[in-house]
Write a protein that binds this DNA or RNA. Structure first.
Lengths: 348, 348
DNA sequence: GCGCTTCGTCGAAGCGCTTCGACAATGACG
DNA sequence: CGTCATTGTCGAAGCGCTTCGACGAAGCGC
């Protein structure tokens, strides 16, 4: 049915290898021959078979995006990473596959990776100690992390600069006169499991507060608006005088806003709220719109995939220049403060 | 490096074809031999090469999810579809690839599809007249729509039942005494481009209103909270006496809420708002939480992929039973009404 | 004008698997 | 006890491509 390279070769009166060289550029081909081959390709509507090419060349155009997938979907913030990754992959001539592989069970990943379908992988929702990283290293599959493990020597990653982000958020509030700030983090479970953002923001928040000589108070709650409301209860119980909230929990943040409103606490007159690592579009949904440390969004996913593709290209011509084999790409992107309607001077 | 089938065969003292039969079950193999082969596989940590298998069998385990991807990511509602699809693919032994292919330019799709990398495709954001469908049909790539074209004869699809959804939403409001209801739809551009949900809800809303002898008023705005605010202005300009809003535009809905609050209109005492086709988690973010026609979420993506996989399986054994070749799967899922805090009796 | 490299092309050998036809060995049957 | 399926296994022929070695034809210097 579909034309093969043999058909093209016959029509152009050349051998199949010549057609291959025209397509891959692996060897020089004269202008006249090239023209003839390209004409034949156009006439037949030929397009190379990806499987055959992959088998023969031991190369693949598939990049795996490894991330745990619950039924609830991923928030808009995470979805931006995925989009960035998919677009970048597409632009580089690769295809992104979405692989629901969480850090809890690496067995499916071992299976997937050893089938040699993927040229490389990008990991999301990385934990401080992530078994998936070991599997990939062991199987020799190139990878890049979106996030990072505890020990980052020799591994490429792109992550959010949580230290700077949290410092800026706290700085903003302290500058407005706030001294009693509570951080609403992801769940205790995420903390215990060693989820990167959860642990790092917890530490970063504590550091940032201490820099200003303030006591860090953190509340860890599950995702979801309802749990955000609970966070307010708990925070007020622990410190009735709290004047500001910092929150990374996308859905819980909205619950925080709701709970404050229900208690008759006005935002930002009575209490300020700053959301960290949130997509602008989400921040706009709140009323008033959320002051937020805006996440780098699609750029994060894009940079990760670009780093991965770089690494693959480098591996291909490793022989040419064996030196740059284990070159790693490590990059931290800060979130940027965008003041909207939920932060203001502390009430006097 | 990695073990091949030849290695397994040698170790188990059988031919490679025997190993293949053990793996695929294409022919019966005696228990003893099977044991020996499986032992060898385990010992070598063998796992079949996906490319080689695909080339030889002319089959692939890749399913393409075709959807346009803007930089902003997809809302949580759409993300649920993607999740459902990815999980279902995984469960069926397939892999989902995320292909940014919009309805505007089908060329990249033609390229992608003719490389024979994909076993099948699922299309999202389907337009009434979608060129992607023609490309897939022409190239003989099995596909399923998440959404549907104008003419659905012979094509498999899974879509939301917009008629029922809209009828239920209007019914709910009319039951509360509302008679002046405005529908906030996606943009005029989406409408003009023939975006399925946009067009179908517009029609469904009009029908639903007329059933009750009411005049349908629709406002079309771009996505985004700011445009939701604009929608309120426009609605009030067209009918100052409006008492209820129906909205499908996820982000604009929040803008509607904000604009109403700013105007001193209380929800639901003064004005009711019903969101249609929205994920529960998103509805919970609003304050008060949104009364919504909740979208079927992950189920939609899951059913689509399952239908696609079914179709692929059927194609494989077409010879066995040539009858059921062009069997199509067409399914409409309704959204279900969940009353929360934004709808109430009309003010008297 | 001779050997020498360089350029452009070809043929053939795989890549690791599936699948088809063939063929012993086994059992069922009259 | 010969015949005919049936069952389990093997060998070989690809699937459609890449890649390597080879080789004729120029092109070069001397």
């Amino acid at each position: 049915m579909a034309a093969t390279m043999t058909d093209v070769a016959r029509l152009a009166n050349v051998s199949v290898s010549t057609v291959s060289y025209v397509l891959t550029g692996a060897r020089p081909i004269s202008g006249a021959t090239r023209e003839r081959v390209l004409a034949a390709i156009a006439e037949l509507g030929y397009s190379p078979n990806a499987m055959a090419r992959g088998l023969a060349s031991r190369r693949s155009t598939l990049l795996g995006l490894l991330l745990p997938l619950g039924e609830d979907g991923v928030g808009a913030t995470v979805s931006a990473f995925v989009n960035g990754a998919a677009s970048a992959a597409s632009a580089a001539g690769y295809h992104l596959t979405l692989n629901p592989v969480g850090a809890d069970d690496a067995a499916p990943l071992r299976e997937l990776a050893s089938r040699r379908l993927l040229a490389g992988a990008a990991l999301m929702a990385v934990r401080l100690d992530d078994p998936r990283v070991d599997v990939l290293r062991e199987l020799g599959v190139p990878y890049v992390l979106i996030g990072r493990t505890r020990d980052t020597t020799g591994v490429s990653f792109v992550d959010i600069d949580f230290d700077t982000t949290m410092a800026d958020a706290v700085e903003h509030l302290v500058g407005l006169g706030h001294r009693r700030v509570v951080y609403v983090n992801h769940s205790q479970d995420a903390l215990a499991a060693g989820d990167g953002p959860t642990v790092r923001t917890a530490e970063a928040f504590a550091r940032a507060m201490r820099v200003h000589g303030l006591e860090p108070v953190m509340v860890a709650v599950d995702d979801g608006a309802a749990h955000g409301r609970a966070a307010v209860e708990e925070a007020l119980a622990r410190d009735p005088g709290v004047t500001a909230f910092v929150s990374m929990n996308e859905s819980a943040t909205f619950g925080v806003l709701a709970a404050l409103a229900d208690r008759g606490l006005r935002v930002p007159q009575d209490v300020s709220v700053v959301s960290v690592v949130m997509a602008p579009a989400v921040a706009e949904l709140a009323h008033p719109a959320l002051t937020a440390m805006e996440s780098p969004g699609a750029a994060l996913g894009r940079l990760a995939v670009e780093a991965l593709v770089d690494q693959l290209d480098r591996t291909d011509r490793r022989d040419a220049d064996p030196a740059d084999d284990k070159e790693v790409h490590q990059q931290l992107l800060p979130c940027t403060l965008r003041v909207r309607g939920t932060s203001g001077p502390v009430r006097s």
